[in-house]
Amino acid sequence: MKRRHFLQLSGTALAASTIGRYAVAAPATAGDAADSAAFLAARRFAELSFGHIAYVERGAGPAALFLHGAPLNGFQWRSAIAQLASERRCIVPDFMGLGYSEVPAQQPLTAGAQCAMLVAMLDQLKVEKADVIASDSGGAVAQLLAARHPERVRSLLLSNCDTEPNSPPKGVLPVIEMARAGTLADDTAKWLSDPALARATFGAAVFHDPSRFTKKTIAYYVEPLVSSPLRRAQYHAFHVALDPNPLAGIESVLRRSRIPVRMVWGASDTIFPLADAEYLDRIFPRSQGIRRIPEGKLFFQEEFPGIIAEEAHRLWQLA
């Protein structure tokens, strides 16, 4: 698979306008440097049997668990938790094989293993139940958590993510092939020396405004993935573990779920189309419907954190 396919396919100021008390958008500015420094300073590690799991925790009150996509890490949710920390204890882990979590070479990186890691983390942090907010591959893990441990999930806010009929999505298959071939890390590492390339390819594929994929943001996401031979191998292993479908057979369980669920979906995403949100709306008995973001792409959560905050606040009133 040619590396250009990966680049093409997967390729803190608040905005002036607001919805209620929440900012709609957080445009990319020089403030990203301050954001990354603050997030770095706030990082902690949960010492689990799985390894040293990196996470950031802010706020107080009932717990909210934020699950990121790939190749991102918890930094994806920085602006959303800034708006929600006044009403929730926001816990933002980095998945094994991504971000700053450190796990041994033999640790499985499947969605099922990620789910088990989260349960162990919640136990260590003495969290009995959490409101879960998730996107992309994190959404697959969130659904597994809801199916296998429903007692741990108070509510579920899903944005552009895997569903049983679309996991892994066709648009991600070339990336998985590159991971199998061992070339994915090398291609991702190029973003560090060529941010313009990162914005023109990956950034354009996943953001409405690729300029928000700043040099500091790229570094925060990419540096841990390519920092050592082990981390490169685990970055590959994470993607290889996306196939076969980690959600196979889950629909029958989710159809019996009593968890309130809301979908917030970027309607311009070509990887997880609106049909995926509509599918989730049909199968969850307590679905609260779909909010469509016309200009939103896969990682719109970074551009429009106020929408995530607003929808989370509304869903939490029902849980």
Rank of each mutant, 00 (worst) to 15 (best):
V175Y: 04
L225I: 01
K190Q: 14
A309M: 12
V172S: 00
A64L: 15
T214G: 07
D94I: 02
A142P: 01
A82F: 05
P229F: 11
C115A: 11
T270H: 14
L9S: 05
S167A: 02
K129F: 01
A37D: 03
D186P: 00
R88T: 03
A23L: 06
D281Y: 09
L247H: 14
D209L: 05
L156R: 09
P224E: 03
V56G: 05
G138K: 08
P294M: 13
E251K: 14
Q107S: 08
A189H: 09
R58L: 15
V119Q: 01
A26D: 03
I307C: 10
S268C: 08
A33Y: 08
A111V: 00
A41K: 06
V206H: 03
N73M: 09
H313F: 12
I81V: 15
Q124P: 06
R256Y: 05
V253C: 05
F6R: 02
R291P: 00
H208T: 13
V24S: 05
F50T: 14
D209Y: 08
F207Q: 03
A16D: 08
L184S: 05
F45A: 01
A82W: 10
V172D: 00
H68A: 04
F238Q: 06
K129E: 06
Q301C: 13
D94P: 01
I271A: 14
F300E: 00
V240S: 07
L9N: 03
I307P: 12
V253M: 08
A275H: 11
T270E: 14
Q106D: 12
K297F: 12
F238G: 10
A275Y: 11
L122S: 04
P273K: 11
F75Q: 13
S36K: 01
E295L: 06
R314G: 03
Q288M: 09
S101Y: 11
T217W: 12
L173T: 05
K129P: 00
N73F: 08
I218E: 06
Q107V: 09
A179E: 11
I81T: 13
R43Q: 14
H52M: 06
E223G: 03
A28G: 15
A70S: 14
E311I: 03
E128W: 02
K297I: 08
Q301V: 15
E47Q: 14
P260K: 10
H68F: 04
I133K: 02
I290F: 02
E311N: 10
R282Y: 07
I53S: 07
